[in-house]
Amino acid sequence: NQASVVANQLIPINTALALVMMRSEVVTPVGIPAEDIPRLVSMQVNRAVPLGTTLMPDMVKGYA
């Protein structure tokens, strides 16, 4: 199964993503693939992302 990017902490709106904020986990539904974690670093989220939430492409500015 494909691992997705999951929030490792609460990520406030407009926060630039850092490695420590993300982990990979096999979840349903599938979100952003875990292999894209390096690409996500320094991109901003466009909403608050609670701990344990799967990151979806529409949550990250400039990802989709």
Rank of each mutant, 00 (worst) to 15 (best):
N46T: 15
A16T: 14
G31I: 01
R23S: 10
P33W: 08
Q44I: 15
A64P: 14
A3L: 14
A48P: 12
V20L: 14
V20H: 13
Q9A: 09
M56C: 05
N46I: 12
A7V: 08
V26A: 08
V41D: 03
S4K: 00
G62C: 05
V27R: 13
V41Y: 04
M43K: 09
T28N: 12
I11F: 00
L19N: 06
A34C: 05
L17Q: 01
V30T: 11
M22Y: 02
P38K: 14
A18L: 15
N14G: 12
S42C: 05
G31S: 00
P33S: 09
E35T: 15
Q9H: 10
N1W: 11
G52L: 04
T15D: 03
R39W: 08
D58P: 06
E35Y: 14
A3K: 12
R39Q: 11
T54M: 03
L51K: 10
I13W: 08
V60N: 00
L55R: 00
R23Q: 05
L51C: 06
R23T: 08
V27S: 04
P12N: 07
K61P: 10
P29I: 05
D58G: 09
V49C: 05
R47P: 03
Y63G: 03
L51D: 13
I11R: 00
Q2A: 10
Y63L: 06
N46P: 02
P29K: 05
A16N: 12
G52H: 08
P33I: 06
V20Y: 14
A7F: 02
T15S: 08
N8V: 09
L51Q: 15
I32E: 00
R47L: 08
Q44M: 15
M21Y: 07
L19C: 06
T54L: 04
A16W: 10
G31K: 02
T54R: 03
V45Y: 00
P12A: 10
A16H: 13
R39T: 15
A18D: 11
M59R: 01
S4Y: 03
A3D: 06
Q44L: 12
M21N: 06
M56S: 07
M59L: 05
R23V: 07
D58Y: 10
L10A: 12
L55N: 01
R47T: 12
M59F: 13
P50H: 11
A18R: 13
G62R: 09
L40Q: 01
P38W: 14
I32W: 02
V20R: 10
T54N: 03
A48S: 14
R23W: 04
A3N: 08
G62S: 08
V41W: 03
D36I: 11
P33D: 06
V27Y: 03
I37K: 06
E25W: 06
A48Y: 12
T53L: 12
L10H: 15
N8G: 08
A16F: 14
P38F: 11
N14L: 07
M21G: 03
T15R: 06
S24F: 07
M56H: 08
L10Q: 11
A34Y: 09
E25K: 15
V6R: 03
P38Q: 15
T15Q: 11
L40D: 01
Q9T: 13
M59H: 07
N8R: 12
A48T: 12
Q9W: 06
A64Y: 13
D36F: 10
T54E: 00
L10R: 10
Y63N: 03
I11P: 01
T53Q: 15
A7K: 01
G52K: 04
A3S: 09
D36H: 14
I11L: 06
L51R: 15
N14D: 13
S4V: 01
P50L: 12
Q44G: 05
Q44W: 09
Y63T: 03
V20Q: 10
P12E: 10
N1K: 12
G31V: 01
Y63F: 07
S24P: 15
N46G: 09
R39F: 13
A34I: 08
R47M: 15
A7M: 05
A64S: 14
P57L: 05
L10G: 08
M59Y: 13
P57I: 06
K61D: 12
A7T: 13
Q2H: 14
T15W: 05
I11G: 01
M43H: 09
V60G: 01
M22I: 12
L55Y: 00
G31F: 03
V49D: 03
V41F: 04
R23F: 05
V26Y: 11
V30N: 13
V6D: 00
V45K: 00
V20M: 13
E35L: 11
Q44R: 14
V45F: 00
M56P: 01
T15M: 08
A64F: 11
I11K: 01
M56K: 08
P50F: 09
V6G: 00
Y63D: 03
L40E: 01
I37V: 06
E25V: 11
G52T: 02
V26N: 13
G62P: 04
L55V: 10
R47G: 05
L40V: 06
S24R: 12
V45G: 03
V60Y: 00
D36W: 10
A48D: 14
Q44N: 11
I32F: 02
P57N: 05
M56W: 05
Q2L: 10
V26I: 14
Y63W: 13
G31H: 01
P29G: 03
G62T: 07
M56N: 05
L51F: 13
Q2Y: 11
L40M: 05
E35V: 13
G52V: 02
V41K: 05
V60I: 11
D58K: 09
M43P: 01
T53Y: 12
A18E: 15
I32K: 02
Q44F: 09
A48W: 12
V30K: 15
I37W: 03
G31W: 03
N1M: 13
L51V: 15
V27W: 03
V6Y: 02
P29Y: 03
E25L: 13
K61C: 05
A7H: 01
L40K: 00
D36A: 09
N1G: 11
L40Y: 02
G52E: 04
A3C: 06
I37Q: 04
D58M: 08
S4H: 02
V20W: 15
N46Q: 10
L10P: 14
P33L: 09
V30Y: 13
Q9F: 06
E35C: 07
V5D: 01
R39S: 13
I37M: 15
G62W: 07
P57M: 07
R39Y: 12
R23D: 06
R39D: 07
P50C: 05
A64Q: 15
P57T: 06
G52C: 04
Y63S: 03
P12G: 07
T54A: 05
I37G: 04
A18Q: 12
S42Y: 11
V49N: 01
D58Q: 10
Q9G: 05
P12D: 08
G31Q: 02
S42G: 14
V41I: 11
G62N: 12
I11T: 02
A16M: 12
